[in-house]
Design a protein around this nucleic acid. Structure first.
Length: 803
DNA sequence: AGCACGCCGACT
DNA sequence: GTCGGCGTGCTC
């Protein structure tokens, strides 16, 4: 008797283990590890993943699995193993790991249906009327009508049964194909048999007779032969044509042409950098390279040519980019070089589109994947290289379970396939650079820009001085002068501001009252479109008060500046300048991002104003000025990485200027010009910044000198939250070595979200082999004896967001 | 997680 | 006496 071990689709501590099922005879040999199956679980039916086949089980009474959901495994043995590793390192449930590795379309949907068993005359009248001659009724319908309890009785009396259905979320898309079912000889007879007035039908037959393809889509046929669907229908009824459903891919780049590009000759410095990578590819050797190249130094060409070599060896490549919809230029470069061999996976695609791209990978119809974080799980089986562009980006860390980091995951996979990883950045994360210094990664450097173009001149403006000299606007004199100068010359400017919306918060000028969220300890954000105050954490919103709720004063002031406000201001100051604004609000619609960029590229705008998303990948020759309106916004968030983030962002943004023939200039406005991350970003001196920041990290016992683990406890009651955190802290304290540093219990940086109080405990450690086990025990303890359902305990190993 | 089972208070 | 509230414990 064959038995399948199954991980069921229930994300809970108690069900986070394999359950055994017998395999019905008709499925033996067909069911394999890595397949999704439908299994009975308690009274219901749910989805599960087969992890192992066995010849028996320790469990006495086994149920048998219902049916497979796949013809071939969706997870191969490597990915199953990777899931084990993810589970261990991030302390997540196995099912969460599996789900993270697959497109959302494969997540199960459940449906409950009441079905009549026999004759409905036996039912009570109310129910009979409700079924109204139908044999089935959904649970939701019944719940809405409030007949659940009567239905329960009918179930007890065996007159109705409750059926649990498991469905996949995404569907394959089918297309209707039409073909000619007549041979050439039969055709003329067929044409003659048609009535004289059936001209359209004749047109269709004639078109198909002349056409070279024997099968084409109904839509295309109708277009080309100028016929309607009724024409086709009658021809099919007459047996002249046949129709067939054919599976098709939704192609998000369908109507886009990609110009074929050829490898560019490499400069000496590129040559030097790529050689070790090619060596590793040649020798099938796993090695991690940190490609540290200043902005505009030609990293992408190195990626492209490394991939080229990998493809020549008939292997596959994964390219991770921070968020691809944000860099359409990147997609262009890969599709341009590798054409149809490229699949693209990013958050802008629909569930169905992602599913289709995933299937192309699984069926080996593509060899290169370009995508955001989750593309690291692309189901290739012969990987030749993994490339992570902008490796310092924090979006590579997933902030929900499984809390994995794409960089570590990539290295793990590459190790399995004995292939290299390239981490590319102009401003490497301290962790990576430190590893390169230690020789864990091999450092490759591109210190010069292509064509030896100078890095832009950077001017740092002290906005306190501006204020003192009476300039209360958001533009310093220097920036404004340069801006008008570029407008006159017809050159383009990029203005960067790290905050969307209008103003960040409102304050009463008389009493200092700041509008805060009643459910969270955070100030509300003003949104001009709706003229409302919104909480970005719990969704609370209210109208902007006209009077101060505390002191009744009418002197309400809007503080902070968002992109919207800057746009308004530009309209007033430079009414002739054409401005393109790019932030989450203007790019949420599909394709909007590309459209705005194209406008700017084609010179239809003078100024590109935007948030973070314009910091990366923009490469337009006519940009000669970059203005950073407020460099400090990131600096003051309570996070040990705030200096690093500030430095990286400023350097990236500055890199947008003067990438081609025109020399670029950068103006950075700040209230803290003396801060080293701003000073050194101004000088574009990464090495100096690295040294300085490493010193700070060493002093603060932060990464890369220490690893971190963060335990966050939340509860409606402050005392419970702090009390539990206290206990957890003590427990951990007593079990780790005295090398570990434990901070806590303390209130989280945001002490309350959604009426729940939040406390945390931060563990800094160098080597604690038992720590994962300890943390697991903590989680188990507080989820099992869940007397208090409201208590939440979350663990983040290597946290990036400390809130 | 969901669902059943089981034990207590408020109704036809 | 029954309906339904939610505390408890299990799911191969």
């Amino acid at each position: 008797m064959q038995v399948a071990s199954v991980i069921v689709d229930v994300a809970a501590m108690q069900t986070d283990r394999a359950f055994d099922y017998t395999i019905p005879e008709k499925w033996t040999g067909m069911i394999q590890p890595g397949m999704r199956v439908v299994v009975p679980f308690g009274p219901r039916k749910i989805q599960g993943f087969v992890t192992e086949l066995k010849s028996g089980s320790n469990v006495k009474k086994l149920k048998s699995l219902v049916e497979p959901m796949d013809l071939v495994p969706v997870l191969n043995s490597e990915l199953l193993e990777l899931a084990d590793w993810l589970t261990e390192t991030t302390l997540c449930f196995k099912i969460s790991a599996y789900q993270a590795m697959l497109p959302a379309a494969m997540k199960a949907k459940y449906e409950k249906i009441f079905r009549l068993r026999g004759e409905e005359e036996l039912l009570n009248e109310e129910i009979a009327a409700f079924f109204n001659k139908r044999a089935e009724l959904t649970w939701d319908e019944a719940a809405k009508a409030g007949v659940l309890s009567s239905l329960r009785q009918e179930i007890k009396a065996d007159r109705i049964e409750l059926i649990y259905k498991v469905k996949s979320r995404g569907q394959k898309k089918n297309i209707r194909m039409i073909g000619l079912s007549l041979s050439p000889e039969e055709l003329s007879a067929g044409l003659d048999s048609l009535p004289a007035n059936a001209q359209k039908q004749k047109d269709v037959l004639n078109y198909l007779a002349r056409s070279e393809t024997s099968l084409l889509s109904a839509k295309e046929l109708m277009d080309r032969a100028g016929a309607g669907s009724s024409t086709l229908k009658s021809l099919i009824e007459k047996g002249f044509l046949f129709e067939r459903q054919q599976e098709m891919y939704r192609d998000p780049y369908e109507d886009r042409e990609f110009e074929q590009t050829q490898p560019l000759p490499l400069t000496d410095q590129q040559q030097g950098a790529i050689a070790p990578v090619l060596g590793a590819i040649e020798e099938n050797r796993h090695e991690t390279f940190l490609l540290y190249g200043v902005t505009g130094s030609g990293k992408t060409e190195i990626y492209l040519q490394s991939i080229q070599r990998v493809l020549e060896k008939d292997k596959e490549a994964i390219v991770l980019v921070p968020e691809i919809s944000l860099t359409p230029q990147m997609v262009h470069r890969f599709k341009g070089r590798f054409g149809d061999d490229v699949a693209v996976l990013h958050s802008g695609l629909s569930i169905g589109e992602k599913y289709d791209e995933w299937r192309k990978i699984q069926r080996k119809e593509v060899k290169v994947v370009v995508g955001a974080r989750s593309a690291v799980f692309a189901p290739f089986e012969n990987l030749g290289i993994i490339i992570i562009d902008e490796e310092h980006e924090t979006s590579y860390k997933q902030e929900e379970n499984p809390r994995y980091h794409a960089r570590e995951t990539a290295i793990k996979r590459a190790d399995f396939y004995h292939c290299p990883v390239i981490l590319g950045s102009a401003t490497p994360s301290l962790e990576s650079f430190a590893r390169a210094q230690k020789g864990v990664y091999q450092l490759l450097t591109l210190p010069k820009r292509m064509n030896n173009q100078q890095l832009p001149d950077v001017e740092i403006i002290d906005m306190r001085e501006e204020l003192r000299s009476g300039n209360r606007s958001m533009f310093s004199h220097a920036l404004f002068d340069k801006l008008t100068d570029r407008l006159e010359k017809g050159e383009q400017t990029v203005l960067f501001l790290n905050r969307r919306g209008h103003s960040s918060f409102i304050m009463c000028r008389d009493c200092g009252y700041v509008a805060g969220c009643p459910h969270c300890d955070i100030s509300l954000t003003y949104h001009r479109q709706s003229h409302r105050m919104k909480c970005h954490y719990c969704g609370f919103e209210e109208l902007v008060p006209s009077k101060c709720p505390e002191c009744n004063s009418e002197h309400i002031r809007y503080f902070g500046t968002g992109t919207q406000k800057v746009e308004d201001e530009l309209g007033k100051l430079l009414p002739h300048a054409k401005v393109v604004r790019m932030d989450v609000d203007t790019t949420s619609r599909k394709g909007a991002h590309e459209k705005l960029l194209r406008q700017f590229e084609e010179g239809k705008a003078d100024i590109l104003l935007g948030t973070q998303m314009i910091a990366k990948g923009l490469d337009f020759p006519n940009i000669t000025l970059v203005g950073v309106l407020s460099a400090d916004t990131m600096l003051h968030i309570p996070d040990f990485r705030s200096s690093e983030k500030t430095f990286q962002l400023l350097t990236q943004v500055s890199g947008r200027a003067g990438r081609h023939h025109l020399q670029g200039e950068v103006v950075i406005q700040t209230y803290t010009p003396e801060h080293y991350s701003i000073q050194l970003a101004g000088k574009q001196d990464y090495d100096q910044f690295y040294n300085q920041e490493m010193m700070m990290r060493k002093l603060g016992n932060y990464p890369p000198f220490y690893y971190l683990a963060l335990v966050t406890v939340s509860h409606e009651d402050v005392m419970t939250a702090s009390g539990v955190t206290e206990k957890i802290t003590q427990y951990i304290q007593s079990r780790v070595s005295n090398q570990a540093i434990i901070l806590g219990p303390v209130a989280s940086p945001i002490p309350r979200i959604n009426d729940r109080y939040r406390y945390q405990c931060l563990i800094k450690y160098k080597r604690e082999p038992k720590l994962h086990e300890i943390l697991k025990t903590v989680m188990e303890h507080y989820t099992k004896q869940q007397k208090d359902k409201n208590l939440q305990v979350a663990v983040d190993v290597n946290p990036f967001i400390m809130m």
